[in-house]
Design a protein around this nucleic acid. Structure first.
Length: 583
RNA sequence: GCGCCCGUGGCUCAGUUGGAUAGAGCGUUGGCCUCCGGAGCCAAAGGUCGUGAGUUCGAAUCUCGCCGGGCGCGCCA
């Protein structure tokens, strides 16, 4: 609908450029929905924009533009208002075509060719497999999944990927934590390291290990602790303490046994994460393992390639990347003095790998605490030959969690956190998914659990689902009353009251909302729209009866509400929320 | 200290990339089913858009300075 109007105006401008206007200007045509009924259906500010450039009276310019607009069935009339706005009043038939389109297209209603089939690799969540997903990850999951579906609806080909950090030091700490808990199950007594993973799930993994493998990983605690530097609470350094324990664990168990302990932790937690995400309605096309980068020498390959540039140097025994050449605050280490790769080195390799996949766009969704990390990764990608524009990093602010007034600590290490699973069980998948995307992603979010729980019954998601269920209910009533829906018998001209006009306008906006929201990477726009659409429907429902004796009117109203139903159902699906037929 | 994000009714947040009289939800107050589902509808009250300047026909939106909050500034991940 909007596209058609933009086309008309561009024709008019082109025509004018052959007469009065200079040909070398390229104004951006902006046609927007009018805020108020008195200003028509759409409004265009092009005369104001042009007036500035060519120094002419905007109202006269508007008059000239209108004179050049091609004739169309859709527009009833144009009006010049205010400083020089052109208000567009549509013919009702223009809206009726949208209802037809919705009914014809069904579950494809709202899909747009905008993306032209361009491919997008969207990486999101990618939480370290060192513990269960918590409510902080939930926001990234809900946002990423909704964005993926949104982009898909807007004509992009989306591949969803989870990057599994299964090779870093944190994983060694986890494996060692599991082993120490296992030793406790073997009746060894000692103080658990302050920097170890303390969550109950570590006990569970250790218990499984003990049940399945018996005491085969058992080592006397004296042998484990001999020569280990003191932990922080005992006046030592917690990092040195845990690192020494990791090394001891590896030597005492040997490569194979260590791997077994390590993998038991990794596999169990990963399975847990996958199950959580699946039940949260989040699916991935690919799980990429960091270990793959090491096993296939992709990191050294990437570093070698980077070294061919002039942006890599040796200093203090370490290998540095001169990211400051590309606007980063300082240079970054890739290989440490002790020969170990940094996390950054692995990330360079991973992003190089992604570049090689020849996607049109790469999108990463990261926690906002990683924002300082963006310049160095982009810098590396430029050196590796990537297009600067290719990578987009979207930052999701962390959700600060409250239980009433009390702020809850959120630390995977200390084991104190509310899991995504707990949240889902308390407020439900639909409400949780919707609640997360109702906020703009870069907006800080105070998430009060008490509030979320207590309000779960009048959560806005039910309002929208209720609208959908009501429409389904109308369909059931229809047959109970001995009618059937006859789409072709409708006389759409009969839809004229205020509620119907409003609702027609709302439905016609749905395809535009998909495009605008996708373009801005903002699923929350869709969430707000769905609430607006539901509001217009509920008002209509309360004001008028649909199942009336007059067949032409009845079917016209049914056509309208079934069009609404498609918009609701399709929109909810994108947000990962179900559209129930009964509630 | 430097960098990034943010500041909009009592609370939680929108505001279509600079447009016309700044909008919702929750909460508060008052109304509405003999009728397709009351998880609904209608109405009222509530605002110096943190603050001071600047840019222009026009600013919640763009620029700069302050105030306040969050995050980041490791050979951690």
């Amino acid at each position: 609908m909007k596209q058609h109007l933009i086309y008309l105006f561009s024709q008019a401008i082109t025509a004018l450029q052959q007469q009065a206007l200079p040909a070398d200007i390229h104004p951006v045509l902006q046609i927007e929905r009018s805020k108020e009924r008195q200003f028509g259906d759409f409004t265009c500010n092009i005369a104001l924009v042009l007036a500035k450039v060519v120094r002419q009276n905007p109202r006269q310019l508007a008059q000239a533009i209108i004179a050049q607009l091609p004739a169309t069935d859709w527009v009833a009339r144009y009006e010049i208002a205010g400083a020089g706005f052109i208000n567009i009043f549509l013919h009702p038939a223009a809206y009726h075509t949208v209802v037809d389109r919705a009914l014809d297209q069904g579950e494809r209603f709202g899909q747009s060719p905008m993306g032209q089939g361009q491919s997008v690799l969207l990486e999101f969540v990618s939480a370290n497999p060192t513990g269960p997903l918590h409510v902080g990850h939930g926001r990234g999951a809900a946002y990423g999944a909704a964005l993926a579906d949104l982009l898909q609806a807007a004509g992009f080909k989306v591949s969803r990927e989870y990057y599994v950090n299964d090779a870093g030091r944190q994983m060694d700490i986890l494996a060692t934590s599991v082993w120490l808990r296992y030793l406790e199950l073997c009746d060894e007594k000692f103080i658990f390291p302050s920097n170890g993973y303390q969550g109950d799930y570590v006990w569970d993994i250790a218990a499984d290990l003990h049940r399945e493998k018996g005491e085969c990983f058992h080592q006397p605690i004296a042998k484990v602790l001999t020569g280990i530097p003191a932990d922080e609470p005992q006046g030592g350094d917690k990092e040195a303490h845990i690192d020494a324990l990791i090394a001891r664990c590896q030597t005492l168990l040997g490569t194979t046994a260590y791997r077994q302990v390590f993998d038991s932790a990794l596999n169990r937690i990963l399975a847990n994460i996958k199950a959580d995400l699946t039940e949260f309605g989040v699916v991935y096309q690919n799980w990429f393992f960091e270990r793959q980068l090491h096993d296939q020498n992709l990191i050294s390959d990437a570093l070698a390639r980077l070294q061919q540039s002039q942006h890599v140097y040796q200093k203090d025994g370490a290998l540095w990347f001169r990211s400051s050449d590309f606007g980063d605050e300082k240079d970054r280490v890739m290989v440490r003095e002790n020969g170990a790769m940094t996390y950054f080195a692995a990330d360079i390799a991973y992003h190089w790998y992604k570049l090689e996949q020849q996607y049109d766009h790469l999108i990463n969704i990261w926690g906002a605490d990683h924002h300082g990390y963006v310049p160095r990764v982009k810098a590396a990608m430029r050196v590796l030959g990537g297009d600067k524009q290719k990578l987009t990093v979207l930052l999701v602010q962390f959700a600060h969690l409250y239980r009433g007034k009390e702020k809850l600590p959120m630390s995977t290490r200390s084991g104190q956190f509310v899991t995504l699973r707990e949240l889902r069980k308390e407020v439900g998948k639909d409400a949780a998914r919707f609640f997360y995307v109702l906020r703009k992603s870069e907006q800080h979010l105070d998430f009060d659990l008490e509030l979320a729980k207590s309000q779960s019954n009048d959560n806005p998601v039910y309002y929208i689902q209720y609208a959908h269920a009501r429409i389904c209910s109308v369909a059931r009533q229809l047959t109970e009353k001995g009618y059937s829906w006859q789409r072709a018998e409708a006389d759409m001209q009969r839809l004229g009251n205020e509620h119907e006009q409003l609702l027609l306008g709302c439905v016609s906006r749905y395809p535009e909302v998909i495009e605008t929201a996708a373009k801005a990477y903002e699923p929350h726009q869709l969430a707000y729209y769905l609430r607006e659409l539901s509001q217009a429907f509920h008002a209509y429902y309360n004001a008028h009866t649909f199942i009336v004796a007059d067949a032409a009117l009845r079917n016209a109203r049914l056509n309208l509400i079934f069009a609404v139903q498609h918009a609701l159902k399709n929109g909810l699906a994108i947000l990962g929320v179900s559209a129930p037929e009964k509630m």
